[in-house]
């Protein structure tokens, strides 16, 4: 087991570390996750989304919570502020497909091998996808997605993922693909983008973030790197 467990005190307080190297022991003695110079991160509960309305926001939180749940492995997407990340992405270049070639004509039924061919921007896909998926949940379960039990939410997400759950106004699989990709991005991108709060995602893996200098580690075979991550704004853990 590598040192990375050191960074993973989950909400259930499971510390599974079995430090095997001197470096890892030294690290353990630094004591949990001492957060030096943490810039104040946004509080998800009081955050006011700019790209989503209240119903959409509830959907998004409930979906992120299932894609990367809080569990024995450690804190999940909500603890990492992933929805904040997605909200910000939707109001930026990505959400508006500003870097993409968005001139028509747009082919229907294009081969997936030719890549994205929809006239919808990612933000539009989210809006339509959430609306349609919520309508489906109301029809099928009598409640919106956010009020479903975790297992039911998983079932809906799996249906979108596999392309079995067809939505009337948007390609459900394309919606899921954005949702999953952006959720992972929000878990692993530098905290300056709004997610990966206190570098929770990096800690789960043992990725040191923006250290960017490893010359003396090149020839240390099979020795886990001992230092925790730092972020672009200088936060450490």
């Amino acid at each position: 087991m590598s040192k990375k467990s050191e960074f993973l005190p989950s909400r259930r307080g499971l510390l599974k570390a079995t430090a095997t190297t001197a470096a890892a022991v030294a690290l353990a003695s630094r004591g949990g996750s001492a957060l030096a110079a943490s810039p104040p991160a946004v509080d998800l509960k009081s955050y006011a989304p700019v790209s989503f309305d209240a119903d959409e926001w509830r959907f998004l939180l409930a979906a992120c919570d299932r894609l990367i749940p809080d569990d024995d492995t450690g804190p999940g997407a909500l603890a990492a502020n992933v929805p904040v990340f997605i909200d910000r992405q939707m109001s930026g270049d990505f959400g508006h497909a500003r870097d993409w070639y968005m001139k028509g004509p747009f082919a229907k039924d294009a081969s997936p091998l030719l890549g994205y061919q929809s006239p919808l921007t990612p933000a539009e896909v989210y809006h339509l996808g959430i609306k349609d998926a919520d309508a489906y949940c109301r029809d099928t379960f009598g409640k919106p997605f956010a009020e479903l039990a975790p297992e039911q939410r998983d079932q809906v997400l799996a249906g979108l993922d596999k392309g079995e759950l067809k939505l009337p106004n948007v390609d459900g699989k394309a919606f899921f693909t954005f949702l999953l990709q952006n959720t992972k991005e929000g878990f692993f991108a530098d905290p300056i983008h709004g997610g990966n709060k206190h570098m929770i995602g990096w800690a789960m893996l043992g990725f040191p973030g923006a250290r960017g200098a490893y010359l003396e580690w090149v020839d240390q075979d099979n020795v886990p790197y001992p230092l925790g991550p730092v972020s672009l704004s200088g936060e450490r853990r």
Binding site: L67, I68, L205, P224
Partner: peptide
């Protein structure tokens, strides 16, 4: 798995290995 607890566990276990 591509998401959920199974993905998280795999990511934690295999990153760097």
């Amino acid at each position: 798995p591509a998401w959920g607890s199974g993905w998280k566990k795999a990511a934690h276990e295999w990153y760097g290995h």
